[in-house]
Design a protein around this nucleic acid. Structure first.
Lengths: 208, 208
DNA sequence: CTATTTATGTACCTTACGGTATAGTACAGA
DNA sequence: TCTGTACTATACCGTAAGGTACATAAATAG
């Protein structure tokens, strides 16, 4: 009766879900949610539409799956960056990764996937706006924790305000995203990030 | 031969262009550029499609006209805020106006019109990305000038860096826009803005 | 009053959209 | 080998998209 985690029963999928979601994400990334058609996604993934619908449901579910993948990726990368012992090396790793991700491979920057594809939908779609809010809250908390840790180990002044420091990093992060998509150069983004980190250095009153 | 600024020749328009553009802007604002149809715009303005096409060209030109109107409005409001003699009153006026505009009349925030409707198109449309870049540069310059003025009249320390101060204000501005559209409350936006202004107060080392 | 010009209103065109019916195919289990 | 199951491929459906032809209406110029 009870079958033990039975292997799949029918014909196996001919594709890797994560690879497909990466292609899906890249397509939405360029053209936006409403600006991307299922035919484009079909062409970008090499899958026929019924396969996409069979595996993911509909356009919005497919988008949300790609967004979840992206956000999990970001969280993992930032967790890794924040695990670096030195605070300022952590922050540099974070901005470095962001700039790389936001500029992409070619010369044309695309910014943050969430900011520029989910945002337009957010005002009419509570489900999407909830995902955005959770993601923003999550980054806020992670940064506050990172600064608290730096205070605990005495790397920065105990008088420093972790929330104020986190606010500067976060605001800079979203600004870099916007400027990347507007066509600013890597050097300009780098300069903005460096300026923020320099400000944090002053605010933090580096101890010792 | 030469006719003196002759009055219009044919049947006069039955609508006011700026009023129509306001309705157009509000519709794009909610649904995004790609997410808004000409039929929606026709319904929102009360004009039939041929009138919209006759007056503005096509969907993109109509959008760009609404965007230009919006940006001119923002520039005018900020110029007024920056004309206030006291620096911190200026900054408070700027954030107050932004929060009002980004939250709209109803409870659902919509953020900055440019950030959330032009951005998604920017990666594939150089014309739109150029408009965004010019608008960002313009705000940067206006803020730098505002801080320079405060230094000149001795309101803040001559050692303060106008570019660093402008960066904090600008980043905060764009962040507030994103949070508004993601569903954060007026109070949360207000808190973010206040925190930025408090930081600027410290960075500026208010003189005297 | 007539001709010219420009806007309006209806109805429509072509294309592309999101999504699906259906027939065939590759696997697991019995 | 047969059967049930899940995936693939082609072809298609109904609708909504951006945009326009055309007849009519309201103004100016002569």
């Amino acid at each position: 009766m009870v079958q033990k985690t039975s292997a799949v029963r029918g014909r196996p999928r001919s594709f890797d879900t994560d690879e497909v979601l990466d292609r899906v994400r890249d397509t939405f990334w360029r053209y936006g949610y409403a600006g991307t058609s299922m035919d484009q996604l079909s062409a970008a993934t090499g899958l026929h539409k019924p396969s996409l619908y069979g595996a993911f449901g509909d356009k919005k579910k497919l988008y949300l799956a790609a967004l979840d993948n992206y956000l999990a990726d970001v969280r993992a990368e930032f967790a890794e960056a924040f695990a670096v012992p030195d605070l300022f090396e952590s922050l540099a790793a974070m901005t470095e990764w962001s700039i790389d991700k936001f500029m992409g491979k070619d010369e044309a920057g695309t910014g943050c996937f969430m900011m520029h594809t989910a945002m337009p939908e957010a005002s009419e779609d509570p489900e999407i706006s909830r995902v955005i809010r959770e993601s923003m809250d999550s980054l806020d908390r992670a940064l506050v924790r990172r600064f608290e840790k730096a205070i605990e180990i005495g790397q920065i002044s105990a008088a420093a305000d972790p929330h104020a420091l986190a606010m500067v990093m976060v605001a800079n992060h979203y600004e870099i995203s916007g400027r990347a998509r507007a066509g600013y150069s890597r050097a300009e983004l780098r300069a903005l990030a460096d300026r923020s980190i320099a400000l944090i250095r002053i605010m933090a009153g580096a101890a010792a």
